[in-house]
Design a binder for these strands. Structure first.
Lengths: 187, 187
DNA sequence: CTCCTGATATGTCTGTCAGACATGTCTACC
DNA sequence: GGTAGACATGTCTGACAGACATATCAGGAG
């Protein structure tokens, strides 16, 4: 099996920023990272247990004033090393499963107007995300003035922005073409 | 559970083009469709069985001269209707799992030069795919002169092309930025 | 004519994943 | 003293990825 349980490494990576609890990880993964890395909630806690067992991370107790005690985790030297080794390996490519495009491909069998609806929704969603990302681009550099991670984060952001722009442009073109196609093929 | 077993519908969709065997489906899925829809080989035959049991498709015997008898399948009216209903539903969005971007995000922990290697490979791969797609754009319209599917296929192709172009452009920009980043952060 | 190679053809199996669902705790406010 | 809502930690099922297994047939090499 060449599937590498990437969840472990995503967690490991986040812990390079600072020690966190499972809940923190979940929030991080659900927010900024979510634009290019979706983690399944159900994987996080089992993965943490496994990582502790392998001694890639270690649990640390944190007593916060006025807040419940949370189980936090920190990288061990072993974990840091494993992460580095993983980062050196060529990235695994996610097999594409673009359901919108599949439906478009089979468009001849679709009920009238459905495809246009799908593409419109697709476009709107990407426009929303693009808005968020463009806002990030403005605010992140100020908040994290000279974080060592900043340069890398901006590259990821740039990727997200360009991809969304391409999707939006394609959507526009496609919408006009769909209109003329359905006119031509009308029974 | 909201996961919809999309494999069934991908198969159903391909059978609208013409009756096919499992092997034909596998080839189709491994070739043209593969650019936006990757199907796991292991799913095809079980899915076919299920589809037959549900009477969405029916097995037909084909005796080809000089070739082994293959089990082919054709859509039933029920199947055609189910496909149509599915096409009308909003497409499910694949959760993103872009391992390259994840590695870039964690770039600070990566060994020297590794990221640049990854991005270069990423760029090369997309350039190769773009070449294939651009070639498709030239040849497909001639081969399938007035297929009812042609218009839809071209839309999918266009999507693939634009996305790849965006990836390639981002790669170029990123490569120059990585170079200057690693210079600045050198110890 | 027999062996071998490679395309044809049909599957199985294991670990990983998606994401809905379950459960309990603490704070703040009424 | 109750309860709404954030905080926090999990479990569970069906679907999926993709490596692996197996058998048949055609055509060429010896």
């Amino acid at each position: 099996m060449s599937t590498t349980n990437t969840t472990r490494y995503a967690i490991l990576g986040l812990l390079t920023i600072q020690p966190m609890s499972g809940y923190d990880l979940r929030k991080h993964l659900g927010e900024s990272l979510n634009f290019f890395w979706a983690e399944s909630n159900g994987q996080i806690y089992p993965a943490l247990k496994k990582l502790v067992a392998d001694e890639w991370i270690m649990p640390i107790k944190t007593h916060q004033r006025g807040r419940r005690t949370r189980q936090q985790y920190a990288l061990t030297p072993v974990g840091r090393n494993q992460l580095k080794k993983w980062l050196a390996k060529p990235p695994h490519i996610q097999p594409p499963r673009n359901e919108l495009i599949l439906k478009l491909f089979l468009g001849r069998s679709a009920p009238n107007g459905a495809l246009a609806q799908h593409v419109k929704a697709f476009k709107r969603r990407h426009e929303d995300v693009l808005g968020v990302l463009l806002n990030f681009r403005k605010t992140i550099p100020k908040d994290n003035a000279r974080s060592a991670d900043l340069d890398y984060w901006m590259l990821c952001l740039e990727h997200g922005i360009r991809l969304r722009q391409a999707e939006i442009e394609w959507s526009s073109v496609t919408l006009t073409r769909i209109a003329s196609t359905s006119t031509r093929n009308r029974r």
